[in-house]
Design a protein around this nucleic acid. Structure first.
Length: 282
DNA sequence: AGCCAGGCTTGGT
DNA sequence: ACCAAGCATGGC
């Protein structure tokens, strides 16, 4: 009756490193040949194997479904890749990082993290999020301690100054307001699952500091709305260079193109383009 | 030193 | 409808 503190998730066509290091999540870290991170209260160590992913937890786990869900090991990647447009940029992107997956994150952690992401480099977002988790942890900060992501209630109880101390600058009031809205029940993150894409996006955009791009990230990474296509500076550059190399296209034009060109899993295609652009050698 | 970073809000035409 | 400034902070 004790399933123990480790398991093996059989899966093919899964690039764990690309997946955990493609700007979807900000707290996973490579340690040797393993990746370490926290899901809920569970500290996990994941290792890529040829035919799957080996997982170890700091404490015994009764049901590993939460991990399969986060990693999305049961989605049929080939079927998704098969819906991508058959053009040269997509072929190159898929060839460069096949096995890249979309994760399914906790919506609150995802929302909070991307509120903190605006005009920040990924390395800095990681620093801010790490500081936030450390400073707001219930335990006194220890040398090697690991911390769960702070709840909306916990952040709502903070002062703006406490949050600014985590180096988030002008994003502090936005994070605080979002935490309060959720703690007060003015925004219901669970209810967003029941809405359609446009309703869900409008709901998230009621929050200060959440525009189209951040809302799309949360809808894609936290809820699995695969039609969400976050357009950031990298994707804008990618679309411009790869699909409109001759003439300069307005952001609106690019957005319209993206909405129709990439098919039902446009968000998935977006992640391939994003990672492709960020890792390719020029 | 100055520019840019997985943007958003506000205020100008 | 489109454009620009301003916003904190840090890396290069």
């Amino acid at each position: 009756m004790n399933p123990g503190a480790e398991t093996f998730l059989p899966v093919r066509d899964y690039d764990l490193a690309a997946t955990l290091d493609s700007g979807q999540v900000f707290r996973w870290q490579r340690n040797g040949d393993a990746w370490e991170g926290i899901l809920g209260q569970n500290f996990l160590r994941l290792t890529q194997k040829v035919d799957g992913i080996h997982a170890q937890a700091a404490a015994p786990v009764a049901d590993w479904q939460f991990l399969r869900h986060f990693l999305q090991t049961e989605v049929d990647l080939a079927a998704i890749l098969g819906t991508f447009p058959d053009d040269e940029p997509m072929r190159n992107a898929v060839a460069s990082c096949r096995g890249l997956r979309l994760l399914r994150q906790d919506p609150w952690e995802c929302l909070a993290s991307f509120i903190l992401s605006s005009t920040k480099q990924i390395v800095q977002i990681r620093q801010i999020v790490a500081l936030l988790c450390e400073r707001l942890a219930p335990q006194p900060p220890g040398s090697n301690a690991v911390f769960a992501f702070p709840t909306p209630q916990r952040i709502a109880a903070c002062s703006e100054a406490q949050l600014r101390a985590c180096k988030m600058g002008f994003r502090a009031p936005s994070l605080l307001a979002a935490a309060r809205a959720i703690a007060d029940g003015k925004i219901d993150l669970e209810n967003i699952r029941t809405l359609n894409y446009f309703e869900a996006r409008a709901e998230l955009m009621k929050l200060r500091g959440v525009g189209v791009k951040i809302a799309d990230c949360v809808l894609l990474f936290g809820y699995g709305f695969d039609s969400a296509f976050p357009v950031d500076v990298w994707i804008e550059r990618a679309l411009q260079e790869l699909y409109f190399p001759r003439r300069r296209a307005s952001e609106k034009r690019l957005r319209k193109f993206a909405a129709t060109h990439f098919g039902p899993h446009a968000g998935y295609a977006q992640q391939y383009l994003f990672h492709y652009m960020r890792t390719k050698v020029k």
